[in-house]
Amino acid sequence: MSGIEVEEARLRDLFWSLVEVYSPSGKEEAVLAYLEEFLSEQGCPYGVQPVDENRYNLLLGNPDAPLVFVGHVDTVDAWDLEDYGPAEAEEDWIVGLGTADMKGGCAAIVEAYLGLRAEGLGRAVGVALVVGEEEDGDGADAFLAEFRPGRALVAEPTDLVLCVGHYGYLEVQIAATGRRAHASVPQRGQNAAERLLAGLSALTRAPLFSGAGGEGPVLNIRHLETTNPGFAVPARAVAWVDVHVPPEIELGSVREAVSAALADADGLEVEFVTEDPGYRLREDDPLVEVYRRVGRGGVGAFRSHSDANRFHRSGVPAFVLGPGRLEFAHAEGERIRWGQVVEAAALYRALGRAYGAACGRTGV
């Protein structure tokens, strides 16, 4: 971003330290303590918003501002507790758990806010560093129980494309029942795992889901388990299935497709555990106009589930914009380009300055 200064050394130290601190969802205390220490060293005031007995959100600036930047400090569980990063790789890449999702975004938000505060714009925007996004979203829920900003900008990895659309999400639990028997005589029982697998096979072949990766709903079988241990035919088996739904498609039609695909399978129980509709915001929204005015181009749709769904459901227009690529999130070898983290910090600062000025809010 031409003309926008970023203290790159400070940003690098912050980002590197955030990735070094292991912070799986529900166990964010250490990374929160580090952030408090960092902010104190910078002379930057912050607020603490309790979420549960040990966990809390960190708030900067004005949480009811016209624009609040939102980042989650938690990650999924590490794939290797002995080696989860960070580490430098070739061609400007930094590898490590949470680099793309979304400690790169969090570091860029904080750096942008420090720059805005130095300009006297510390109350023009807000920052919410929340916990719990990778599990039940309790950090975002706590924030929204108390505050209603004008707009939210969620720093999930979008390759720095502003997402005005957001996919919806269905979490489906499918359970199969059978009859237990000794594993050496399976014909004397009814294998719940086999029933479940037959149902899942039918589901993946359903016309609505057979084109995964295109413009239709995206189905993922996330977890499978049987409930009885030992050398036996399982009497119960359970699967959890994720369905990400483009904003133009109603969740009701997807529920019907899931139910229809499983209708002929024996012994299955289907429960829709989580339902979050997708949405699409107006491309002539003032924030989109500011985004284009500071030198950016097209817009897109975020293909996953995020805290933005919660903000939107609570009546806060929620856009998604962050460094990194979604395809690297939650994956072994998660990575981000360092240059894009720097670019994100400059972009956030430019957006905060321009949008804050447009809304007429200043102050420290």
Rank of each mutant, 00 (worst) to 15 (best):
A65W: 09
E256A: 07
G47P: 11
G104Q: 05
A107Y: 12
A112R: 07
R313S: 12
V68H: 01
L326H: 13
H72A: 03
L35Y: 11
A239K: 10
V68Q: 11
I4N: 02
V342L: 11
T75M: 05
V51L: 08
V316R: 04
L14D: 08
T177P: 04
F147N: 14
V273N: 01
V299G: 07
L58A: 07
R10A: 09
V238P: 00
A206T: 03
R303T: 13
D307Y: 01
G26Q: 01
Q340M: 12
E111R: 08
E289Y: 12
V161S: 07
A124N: 01
G178Y: 10
A181I: 14
E82A: 05
L347Y: 04
E225P: 05
H182G: 09
P50D: 06
V288T: 05
I109R: 10
S184D: 00
E7D: 15
V73W: 01
P24Y: 06
F311V: 00
V76S: 11
G297M: 12
E28K: 04
V243Y: 00
E171H: 11
N220Q: 13
G104K: 08
D285H: 15
R10I: 01
F147C: 11
D136E: 10
A331W: 02
K103Q: 07
V233P: 02
G115C: 08
P317A: 04
R280V: 11
D13N: 15
Q42F: 12
V294D: 11
A152G: 06
R296P: 09
W79C: 06
V294T: 09
Y169P: 02
F272P: 00
L116T: 02
T227C: 04
W79V: 09
I174N: 09
E82V: 00
D83S: 13
P86G: 01
L196A: 04
L200C: 06
R222E: 11
A142I: 04
G189R: 14
V243A: 03
G105E: 04
P247A: 12
A235L: 04
